[in-house]
Design a protein around this nucleic acid. Sequence first.
DNA 1: GGTTTCACCGATAGTACTATCGGTGAAATT
DNA 2: AATTTCACCGATAGTACTATCGGTGAAACC
Lengths: 212, 212
Amino acid sequence: MSETPLTRREAKDLTRRRLLAAALRILDEEGEAGLTTGKVAKAAGIAQSSFYVHFKDMPDLLRALGEEGGERLRRDMREARRRAREAPGELESHRDAFRIPLEAVSRHPELLRILLRARHDPSSPLRGFALETARAYREHHAADLAALGYTADDERDRRRLEMIADAMNAATDALALGHLEGRYPDLEEAADVLVALSRGSLRWLRATRRDP
Amino acid sequence: MSETPLTRREAKDLTRRRLLAAALRILDEEGEAGLTTGKVAKAAGIAQSSFYVHFKDMPDLLRALGEEGGERLRRDMREARRRAREAPGELESHRDAFRIPLEAVSRHPELLRILLRARHDPSSPLRGFALETARAYREHHAADLAALGYTADDERDRRRLEMIADAMNAATDALALGHLEGRYPDLEEAADVLVALSRGSLRWLRATRRDP
DNA sequence: GGTTTCACCGATAGTACTATCGGTGAAATT
DNA sequence: AATTTCACCGATAGTACTATCGGTGAAACC
């Protein structure tokens, strides 16, 4: 049997993390409609009223959840970016650039599902956070394209890169969700599809480079 | 001033349609959390209790909304498919195949937004309908690819077509939403991006045709 | 060792929504 | 013209959830 010599601060922090974990699980399994202070508190092993010791109200918990989850996602993506840059071959690197995000999403599917839902739900307290996250990914991806040498001098060029980034991100999410639903068992195959689509966009960018 | 010589049946049907329209608007503006029998009834100009004259409960209304909206969406898509087939040039036809859905979505953005939200919300009564709709689009799109001569004999090939269809549909939705948010003012540009991505996938399918 | 702090508890007032009921008047039926 | 039907109404019982309150015991502080 393990001792539990926890200080008061440690115990409180543990409870807080239990609440956040319970909320994430309920949110993923039942949606925001099923998310109540009572359910979360009970799942975390405390009384409903004690919920308010840790959070001002439910939106406050969701904000905290967004901040923590976003931090984790950003870490994952930075890591993915770094590994993709260090990859060896040209084609290998290109495939990695898509396989790594696919794997990251598959490891933490709840967060993606919750963000996708919140993005389209005007009543969700997480909506602003979801939109901000999506914008950040889009612009990072567009910046990557610019770094590959595809100029973004005028407004039209910049918009092109943003549209490609937006479309590729959406395609990545769709294939990751399909994988989670069991339709695409092999992430390698999904990465191949994304590489093919991406190559199409790069070819188009090259073919339509500035003026005749 | 116009007379209103409505039969009882006409009057009831009118109220029913008012309820559905009010629900759609509230759903789009406030999300499912804001959708209550009281709000919908008031917006339709009747008492809260009269809601139950027309629908068994709220899920029942949502089911009806899904059926009607789905019917309209299917009509739009059939039409889009037909027009794309009749289009003249090769490239024109290819661009049309993407511009037309983009335009269809832009005309009825509420429905897409609601479907996207419901798809990821386990608590939504519309979830089953949203998943079914997504599946139908994916398979139609995959069937179109097969009709272009990209064989789908074995499991791997069929999965490839499905993944491409899935990814392209997601990309289309993403660009349509970006257009609605004002980021991509010109749908023609968005269609160009989709054509470029699509060409990438077609080139890949050709390059990897059956055995060496 | 005495005092203070505070995470947690049960109880409960307040709020919002659902769904049913009996009543009403005008349309439909006879 | 008499009778029936029914879309709609106001009232209300029932349910679910929020958020606050005073009380309690053990950890933290002195």
